[in-house]
Write a protein that binds this DNA or RNA. Structure first.
Lengths: 348, 348
DNA sequence: CTTGATTTGAGGCACGTGCCTCAAATATGC
DNA sequence: GCATATTTGAGGCACGTGCCTCAAATCAAG
């Protein structure tokens, strides 16, 4: 029940000094890695820290330092409902964390142009920012710019768009292969035993995320549902007209389509076009991200399931992770794992 | 982007005093509702609060007051894997919140005996506890004991087990009708178009939670899947032998069972018995709560879906809500909504 | 206008930590 | 043993808020 000193007061630096038999000044030197302390003394203080289970009171420390955590979220310039929702949740999260001395701002940058993005990152000053959360596809230029940011002491966190572990161990977002596999499993089980084809719609297949989702989707279908054949991904390139053209043509060509999987974050346009094309009721539609558009489609029955990640959770998790990095403290892994959620009309 | 003073320092009571044209002592009187201040002065200070967007620095305030939040979690004495997981996550959450001056303990009480429970609650002192999270079925005695706790100034939060809104507006846990409806929807879609029966297994149908889950389940099946007939709930009363007896008999009696829904939080025993009874592969099994037992059943294919709530989220949400109540501050609704999650073998 | 009550101000100490200075103690090299 | 360098201690101020005291200012009633 109580693994340490629980309900009584936590030990302070004063207690450390007393137990280690040194002064508070020396405790301070050890705690903040200042030099000019003999190893023997360092060890004694560290022993006291262990013995008392001392944990630095970060709130008091920040108060003393008047420290502020200034974080910047860099989001793509293009985007639709999901991006708007994400922005709103970031603002909300920043407001909620104001008590912990963190403030966050949000900047839309042309993240698809590696040159512009890397220039923007290079211009960021460590005087102004403590950490940056970046939602952008990977590129060599981005990788270099990130390295320079880290060298200048600015924390960097890949956000929602995966950087394939090249930048840092942790990443805020779902495992897209898992998401695709889950979409595939639901697709297979909802379609049933009939034989037919599955249509996959994407904004672009150039992004790592899309590839991973498609890969997970294919793997599941291939392994468990041999009755279904997945067509090559249709790419809309975010253009309404192109989306309409490719969807219309493809659907006309394949009368035996049993399901549609929209794997991009923004499903509004493809959904509207599918609606116009009047797909038969039994065609299973699975989309990503909970937005006004996908929710209303789920409720009116045209969409069967939404695979999603909680934007509020994404925002708060990024803030907590950036703060933990600045403090050099541990995160609570179970809290920061972004879940791949399944929404049906009953639990939306 | 910035709705108020964002990256600069937040206003302090000193700023309030200056702007309102009063002393810091008066600001303090107004902020902490001390008497002996003219209405006119109160208004001026409040105007300054509004104008500057002042928000009390709770960390500094708690430091000054040496305030600690001492919370108690009261959990049932009986329970299996889910309860163990919940306990672990409460400990973990308490550790994570230690920086915010909150400490939490955990007590197992015979929550099924209203007399014992209410006596236990009555014995709690406001000197020792600031808030209590209670996981227990509702009863008149409980309701009275809770009223007395509130009168003594101890915050109370219904936890996981719903109290039907009689105790307080907020409740930490899922909407069980939603959970049941979601189980029903998955059951119907996974079974497909065949005609047959669905078995429902519960520990007891005396609890509000079980009734709500069953109600949601029935509603969905009735409305959308007329091909399925739901059998009366089997109650195990938590006894292995009884569980084995009723399950064996019922399954023998109904050869056309297409699905099994285990609606209680602890599925280990029923799952084990079903395994022994060697149900055909096509029988769809849906259970609640992510535990070692349900996860392994999901992965080996015997269980098709787990409907669950995140125990870590439950614990942390309860801590945040109790703290917010003590502070008289607002919670972030979107963060505290406990989601009804669906786990398949791909996203477990 | 005086009296007494009410309201306000000035100032201080506390909380736990960071960060600074200056002197004292101790260790090291010769 | 002495001179010098290194290590340590004592003490203080700061952060933003709570809470206290005591005196001064302002108000209402006679």
């Amino acid at each position: 029940m109580d693994d340490s000193s629980d309900d009584l007061l936590r030990p302070t630096t004063k207690d450390l000094a007393r137990v280690a038999g040194v002064s508070r000044a020396t405790v301070d030197r050890v705690l903040n890695n200042r030099e000019g302390v003999r190893q023997k003394t360092v060890d004694r203080v560290n022993a006291a820290i262990r013995d008392l289970g001392f944990v630095r009171n970060i709130a008091a420390a920040n108060l003393a330092k008047s420290r502020r955590y200034r974080f910047l979220f860099i989001l793509p310039r293009t985007g639709d409902l999901f991006l708007q929702e994400l922005s709103d949740r970031i603002e909300e999260g920043a407001a909620a964390f104001a008590n912990d001395a963190v403030s966050a701002e949000l900047q839309r940058v042309d993240t698809n142009d590696p040159h512009i993005l890397s220039q923007y990152l290079t211009d960021l000053s460590a005087d102004r920012w403590d950490g940056v959360a970046i939602m952008a596809p990977q590129s060599p230029q981005l990788r270099d710019a990130v390295t320079r940011l880290l060298e200048r002491g600015i924390q960097v966190l890949p956000f929602v768009a995966n950087q394939e572990g090249t930048i840092s161990d942790d990443f805020v977002g779902i495992d897209n292969k898992t998401a695709g596999a889950t979409a595939g499993l639901l697709m297979g089980r909802f379609v049933g035993r009939s034989q037919g084809k599955i249509l996959v719609v994407a904004e672009t297949m150039n992004a790592q995320d899309s590839l991973e989702r498609r890969h997970g989707f294919d793997m599941t279908l291939h392994r468990k549902f041999p009755n279904l054949r997945v067509l090559p991904s249709l790419e809309t390139y975010g253009a309404d007209s192109r989306a309409e053209a490719v969807l219309t043509t493809t659907i006309a060509h394949h009368p035996d389509i049993l399901g549609v999987y929209i794997l991009s974050s923004e499903a509004r346009v493809p959904l509207r076009i599918l609606q116009q094309l009047n797909m038969p009721d039994h065609v299973v539609q699975i989309v990503h991200e909970r937005t006004a558009s996908t929710v209303s489609a789920l409720l009116d029955g045209s969409v069967d399931a939404i695979i999603t990640q909680d934007p509020g959770h994404l925002a708060r998790s990024a803030l907590r992770r950036l703060k933990a990095r600045c403090d050099g403290s541990e995160i609570l892994a179970s809290q920061e794992r972004i879940r791949t959620e399944i929404l049906l009309e009953t639990n939306v």
